[in-house]
Simulated assay, not measured.
Amino acid sequence: FSGTGTNMFKEEGAQQGFSSVTKSIGFSTDSITFGTIENGHLLLFETSSSRKLGEGRDCAYRCQDLESGRELALKMYKITNPDQRRAIFHDLYAQRSQVGKHERIVSYERVIESENTIFVLMELLNGKDLFDVICTEALTEEKARVLFRQLLEGVQHLHRKQVIHCDIKPENAMLLGSLEDGTANLKLIDFGCSCFKEFEADSRGCVVYDSYMPPEHVADSKLSPSVPTDMWRLGCTLYIMLVQRPPFHNDAQTQAGLAARQAGQLFRVPEYEALSPEARGLIEQLICGDPSKRPTCDEALNHPWLGLA
């Protein structure tokens, strides 16, 4: 092994470790072995570039604990890459604040630092993300109610930890088990854009500029994320779960898009109008142009729609 960590991220919770990369002759696959020593015990893990779990800039890989054989999810960051520095710190903050110590949040196992790489080990979630579930089938209100309650419970836990997720959307919720047999378990993932108020003095850079962006952040780019930021995105997610399309058809950052969001002018397609008054009522409370009027997670969990049988 080579490349022992320099303890650059020790204060943020990373364990000093080491790593080794084995090049495969004639193949494009690299085998990566890394580890650390904890209480005198050697911990070794292995992955390869072919074991990718998804796509995207910070995609995860399937990884194996070489002692127990247990499989984990792994994110790898190059320490020298300035574009990945924020994501590194946010995963370290997620580990330190123990956001994953809740059944509705992906569990962070440990963070290991070698000379050039940060290895973030997480619980491996064998399931489908909520976006794929929605694309596959139109959720009834009964099924959506189960999943949305679980999503609210996860976000409620984050807010009690003074963490704003900032990137709530169907793609960042994983469904384990089945809705049909009552084993469905939704888990929130991806804290790369989250705001950790315990550790960050300035969190303005955590705002995600996408179609789920709340209007107050479009109107004021200096505004820091807060509880209403997540509540708006939860409302957009619930709309998509029940209607199978986004609640607005304008770009959030255009003048027309901003005006529609500030006025709460949802895309009122027949599928939306067919929802129960209780479902529409909760959506419209969450997707409210005035952030001060959006409910908290505690209040949303007590909404009549979530109490329906």
Rank of each mutant, 00 (worst) to 15 (best):
G3D: 13
G3A: 07
G5S: 09
F9R: 11
G13V: 13
Q15I: 10
F18C: 07
S20G: 02
T22F: 08
K23C: 01
K23N: 10
S24R: 15
S31D: 07
F34E: 04
G35Y: 04
E46N: 14
E46C: 08
T47M: 13
T47G: 05
S49Q: 11
S50M: 14
K52Y: 03
G56A: 06
R62Y: 05
R70K: 15
E71C: 10
T80D: 12
D83L: 12
R86D: 12
F89G: 08
A94D: 01
V99K: 08
G100K: 12
H102E: 07
H102I: 10
R104V: 05
R104M: 10
R104S: 10
Y108K: 08
V111C: 15
E113K: 07
S114I: 06
V120N: 05
L125P: 11
K128A: 11
D132Q: 13
T136G: 14
E137K: 15
T140I: 09
E142I: 03
K143F: 01
L152Q: 02
H165G: 00
C166I: 09
D167E: 14
L186Q: 04
L188V: 15
F191T: 04
S194I: 15
F199C: 12
R204C: 08
C206I: 06
V207W: 02
V208T: 11
V208H: 04
Y209P: 00
D210T: 00
P215S: 08
A219H: 06
D220M: 04
L223R: 14
S224R: 12
D230N: 08
L234D: 01
G235Q: 04
I240F: 14
M241S: 09
R245G: 01
P246W: 04
N250Y: 13
D251V: 03
T254M: 06
L258V: 10
A259S: 12
A260I: 05
G264F: 10
G264E: 08
R268Y: 02
R268G: 00
E271N: 01
E278W: 06
A279T: 03
R280V: 09
G281F: 01
E284N: 14
E284A: 06
T296E: 03
C297P: 02
D298V: 14
A300K: 02
A300L: 07
L301S: 08
P304V: 11
